[in-house]
Design a protein around this nucleic acid. Sequence first.
DNA 1: TATTGTTATACTCTATAACTATA
DNA 2: TATAGTTATAGAGTATAACAATA
Lengths: 140, 140
Amino acid sequence: MKDPLVNLAGYVLRRASAVALAELNQRLAPLNLRHADVAMLMLIESVPGITQSHAGRVLDIQRANMAPFVARLEARGVIERRQVDRRSQALDLTRRGRALLSRARRVVAAHEATLLKRVPVKLRPMVLPILMALWNRDAA
Amino acid sequence: MKDPLVNLAGYVLRRASAVALAELNQRLAPLNLRHADVAMLMLIESVPGITQSHAGRVLDIQRANMAPFVARLEARGVIERRQVDRRSQALDLTRRGRALLSRARRVVAAHEATLLKRVPVKLRPMVLPILMALWNRDAA
DNA sequence: TATTGTTATACTCTATAACTATA
DNA sequence: TATAGTTATAGAGTATAACAATA
């Protein structure tokens, strides 16, 4: 069939993202995690003690949505909060959080490998540079 | 800051897609259209008389969600439905639909140009091949 | 004054189940 | 039996507004 949409980078970008996201969430389901959970755990591991508001800005999650999101991870015992001053919350992984993340990281690595394997070898080195360039919202 | 997520194609894919989608929807707002509306109009234009169910499969929109979606476009007078047999609906653009689509197409073209301009010239020819490859859900 | 965190709320998008009617 | 369309409904994800407390 003549599909006029496959020539539109924006459309294909959206479809590719939706498929990849669904696949990752399926892979993470046995760990009872969603993709956003893993992103948060990875960020906290990389920047221990990052404040809740800062993490929200990095992950592009709004303050109002961070509150229940972080509360859920804390209730589950994978992160803990610490008062930095009397309004900021520093986030850290708990022992359980680190253990869960190390399992999640293997799932993510497998997912990444699956994604890249879809791309012809010659094009693979350009995947991340192109995606990073497309992501750059400040450009033009 | 050390951001562990920017090395993950899946993550950057999601962020790039989210930004592009938001920008496109903003551009389409003056036409009172959403990105999915334009995809549907483009598909119908390209395959006049496509059935509702077939369109749903191409666009990856579920039957249950197609009903109100198509009804809204029909109520707006941009598409029309025609009985193909006593259960299938063929979809076609109305005159108004074609006029609206021609305006939307210019918006989409501008959006596409904006996206591609973010990518270094040398990499631009690889954008669509890479995105198409990533989209291929049947692979591996 | 601007920022952090919170609650409440609403809207979009997506997913599932159940149903009727028809091929 | 499988398919087309519909309705109802529930769940994510995301967005705004308003508020208290603090920097």
